[in-house]
């Protein structure tokens, strides 16, 4: 079997809390191939963000391992090389940029940390990145203050790209944005993925977005992986009740979608009664 690009192998993560231990993830194994957009789906408490944190090295798994191209990803003192390869785009555009640093300074940080390019060329490279995410070059000198949510998110994308990463963890990157802006940012993310041959771990609860962009899907419920597979297959014939319940709950805007969704509603009613 070929070596996986990113593999999560039997990972359990427990957090200590005031009332004892919380199991955030339990015995989770998934595999992300190079170049795919892998959606990680779940509601609050599903463990989806914990999984993102493990991939990024924000904390260590309690047991099991996360491997990137065969190499075990630890948390503390992760080598710069691996930090550079795995980047993050966060949910909240308001806190993603330091209000006391200019847009250019935020993007440029990666060049200085990883010694990317000639010093003299870095300003030019910042301008190129801004252009790539659809912002004018003079934004480099601006403070994040006057920027809209969508613009901030574009800057955050440029900052991640500055590292020239291979894998990007996207943690609900558009859920705080208005519909029109969301569509534009999603388009941008898709374009960038193809141009830079990136792999995405796309954490979200929005199944319509998942249907739009994901190649493969892993569904989490209460720290457990309930289903993982090709997006086409899961949307056509979801195997678990939980996935069906999620699908059945999506508010939709057209009759075709409603018909598609309501296929899952009949099954859902029984499940809900059982849970209550």
């Amino acid at each position: 079997m070929s070596e996986a690009f990113l593999s999560v192998e039997g990972v359990t993560k427990r957090f200590r809390s005031a009332g004892g231990e919380v199991i955030a993830l339990e015995d989770v194994s998934i595999r992300v191939d190079h170049g795919e957009c892998h959606a990680i789906i779940g509601e609050s408490g599903s463990g989806k963000s914990t999984l993102g944190g493990l991939i990024l090295g924000l904390f260590e798994p309690t047991s099991g391992s996360v491997r990137f191209k065969g190499e075990i990803l630890g948390a503390p003192r992760r080598p710069l090389r691996l930090k550079r390869a795995i980047q993050l785009i966060q949910q909240n555009p308001l806190s993603a940029l330091n209000p006391r640093r200019t847009v250019g300074q935020s993007i440029r940080l990666a060049f200085d940390v990883h010694a990317i390019g000639e010093k003299a060329q870095r300003g030019k490279r910042v301008a190129e990145l801004l252009g790539e995410v659809g912002l004018p070059a003079d934004y480099a000198l601006r403070s994040p203050h006057g920027l809209s949510g969508g613009e901030r998110q574009r800057v955050a994308i440029a900052r991640a790209l500055a590292c020239e990463p291979e894998l990007i963890v996207l943690d609900e990157p558009t859920s705080a944005l208005d519909v029109l802006v969301q569509a534009r940012v999603l388009q941008l993310l898709m374009r960038i993925r193809h141009q830079h041959r990136l792999t995405y771990a796309f954490i979200t609860h929005d199944l319509a977005v998942v249907r739009g962009i994901a190649d493969r899907v892993s569904v989490f419920e209460k720290g457990r992986l309930v289903e993982s597979g090709l997006a086409d297959a899961i949307f056509a014939t979801p195997q678990s009740d939980y996935t069906r319940r999620l699908l059945a709950a999506v508010p939709v805007v057209s009759d075709e979608e409603a018909r598609f969704r309501d296929r899952f509603r009949a099954a859902e009613v029984d499940a809900e009664e059982a849970e209550d």
């Binding site: 993050l88 966060q90 330091n98 955050a156």
Partner: peptide, 17 residues
């Protein structure tokens, strides 16, 4: 806890930075 601090950590910025 702010996003930009997390982002700087993930980019790989040094402790003094």
């Amino acid at each position: 806890q702010e996003g930009y601090v997390v982002a700087a950590e993930i980019v790989g910025a040094s402790l003094p930075h």
